[in-house]
Design a protein around this nucleic acid. Structure first.
Length: 546
DNA sequence: GGCTCAGGCGCC
DNA sequence: AAAGGGCGCCTGAGCC
């Protein structure tokens, strides 16, 4: 059952589609109508834009199982059709169908504000746009996969809205104590925290003059006056410099970042009622990864994890896709040898065995193949990789070659990379052409792996959402890592659901394959205690395996 | 005062 | 330990 939804004020027009297509109905209360129908069955709700339609439903705790997001789907289709950059909104899609003037996409915070307060409905026939999209999906390279991509992307939009609404547990008191311990007490407006000021004073004393430590230009000039030439003020560059200002400067930079990015002002804006509520943007990155719009949820420093604590009597169940990208490559490339290695819990150790080398070298070879690295021993190790896993090697080489030639590449499910810019096309014909070509080759080489890893993660999370027992909630998602907040007594059930969702996601994407993508959950009270299991340190145990 | 850009660095 | 690609977002600085 599919139902096309056109919101009108607080109500909506509902139009059932498909085999049991029925009469168009009007409801005065969309949230109530969705709640009622979800009790009977789980229709796929078709609507223009989850980001606009879903929040009012969430506000009344109405959470549909499935939807089809016209805007996200339009973006995927335009990309696949080589029409990247054309306006992707449902309104634009409808205008194109009807030969009307196509409205530009509304982007940026200002445009969103405007749409929030002016619920003027765009003239969109949801059912008509949906029908068009279904036809275009059938014309893609692999419609079955593309349908899965659309379902996962739309589920992602639901989850992104829910996570923003529910928020990640965040202890304001622990956060304040952490900041106070590292920086000193919260300063009055316009002042530096005491410990930052002390470090700034030390920098001044070391240079014998006043320098703004936040200004790279001033720092370079100060070193120059001291007879030292520094290429930049990046920390790894400064570490090599022998000067008394270096130590306090490095300490300052680290603390200043904490203060300005995740300090008290940040908390005032993004944390309320023991919850951190960022705005996630599903499909915000060309590779299909999520982005955030404010709050910096995907860049929280690890030191801040101690602030993320489960409610009393609840736990955080944390899991990430272990060695996800090489496993995804093994499955995509259909390389039997690599797929067998990817059937092991520690893929790199298995690789090392096949290589007859160290685990570390095996990892370098693998990463260099996926990312186009050439530094250090990479080239030598790549030659081994090419010999042992010719199909996997050829797969990423072909992606790189396509990029260098200006062609498009696609993920496993059909997400398509952006075409080269006009600037690139000019550049590639000029004297720096070889370099521009290589750069794009690295991008497309990485795209096929990163984008497929992103769609595996999205699929896994969508399946997990469907398996979670109430009142467990997904509260955090970071590229290949998920966090569920649940009552202590549900930890076992939730952990099991995480693993089952991973197995199902692998089957859905890749069918029968020896590749395993393990996702082991750990239950903790505090996020800082969730040691990632994906990267075993090359300690005695790992060495013994290798 | 608002805009854009670069430098820098956090996460995967 | 790092490399590679992908991002967001702070500050300073230059410009209008």
């Amino acid at each position: 059952m599919w139902i096309a939804v056109t919101p009108e004020g607080g109500g909506a027009t509902l139009r059932p589609l498909g085999g049991r297509a029925g009469a168009v109905t009007h409801v005065d209360d969309l949230a109530e109508a969705v709640r009622d129908l979800e009790r009977v069955e789980q229709p796929r709700w078709i609507w223009a834009d989850t980001r606009a339609v879903y929040p009012p439903l969430l506000a009344r705790d109405v959470r549909p199982a499935r939807c089809h997001d016209l805007t996200l789907t339009e973006a995927l289709l335009l990309g696949h059709e080589g029409r990247y950059g054309e306006p992707r909104s449902a309104g634009a899609a409808y205008a194109r169908l009807r030969g009307l003037p196509v409205p530009a996409d509304e982007t940026g915070a200002h445009a969103r504000q405007a749409t929030l307060f002016e619920p003027e409905p765009l003239p969109v026939d949801v059912a008509e746009v949906y029908g068009d999209q279904v036809r275009r999906i059938e014309r893609t390279a692999d419609p079955a996969r593309f349908r899965l991509l659309v379902a996962a992307e739309s589920a992602g939009a639901l989850i992104a809205a829910e996570m923003g609404h529910d928020g990640m547990p965040w202890r304001e008191d622990v956060h304040d104590a952490l900041l106070t311990g590292m920086l000193g007490p919260r300063p009055v407006h316009g002042m530096r925290p005491a410990k930052l000021q002390a470090l700034a004073d030390q920098v001044d004393a070391a240079f014998g003059t006043t320098v703004n430590p936040d200004s790279p230009q001033q720092i370079v000039r100060a070193f120059k006056a001291a007879g030292l030439s520094v290429a930049s003020t990046r920390s790894h560059v400064l570490k090599e410099v022998d000067h008394p200002a270096v130590a306090p400067l490095l300490a300052y930079k680290e603390l200043a970042r904490l203060y300005s990015f995740h300090g008290w002002v940040w908390a005032d804006q993004w944390v309320r009622g023991h919850r951190f509520r960022p705005e996630y943007v599903a499909g915000g990155v060309v590779s299909g990864r999520w982005a955030t719009n404010g709050g910096g949820a995907l860049q929280i420093p690890k030191v801040m994890r101690q602030v993320v604590m489960a409610d009393e009597g609840w736990r955080l169940v944390v899991a990430d896709g272990a060695q996800l990208e090489p496993r995804v490559l093994a499955a995509m490339a259909g390389d039997g040898g690599l797929a067998r290695a990817a059937g092991e819990i520690d893929l790199y150790a298995a690789l090392a065995q096949a290589f007859g080398g160290s685990r570390q070298n095996a990892k370098i070879a693998m990463l260099s193949a996926m990312y186009g690295g050439t530094s250090g021993d990479a080239l030598k190790l790549l030659a081994v990789m090419r010999q042992r896993y010719p199909q996997a090697y050829a797969f990423v080489e072909e992606a790189a070659k396509a990029g260098e030639e200006g062609r498009l590449v696609r993920s496993w499910l059909g997400r398509t990379c952006p075409p080269p810019s006009k600037h690139w096309s000019r550049l590639v014909a000029g004297p720096e052409g070889a370099r521009a070509a290589r750069d794009r080759g690295r991008f497309t080489r990485n795209f096929v792996v990163q984008a497929t890893a992103a769609e595996w993660s999205l699929t896994q999370m969508a399946l997990l959402r469907g398996l979670l027992p109430a009142p467990a909630r997904l509260v955090f998602f970071q590229h290949d890592e998920v966090m569920v907040h649940c009552p202590e007594e549900l930890v076992g059930e939730v952990s099991g659901a995480v693993g089952r969702a991973a197995v199902q996601a692998t089957r859905l994407l890749f069918g029968e394959t020896p590749v395993r993508i393990p996702m082991e959950a750990v239950a903790v009270t505090c996020y800082a205690d969730a040691k990632p299991v994906s990267e075993p340190e090359p300690g005695p145990a790992a060495t013994a395996i290798a």
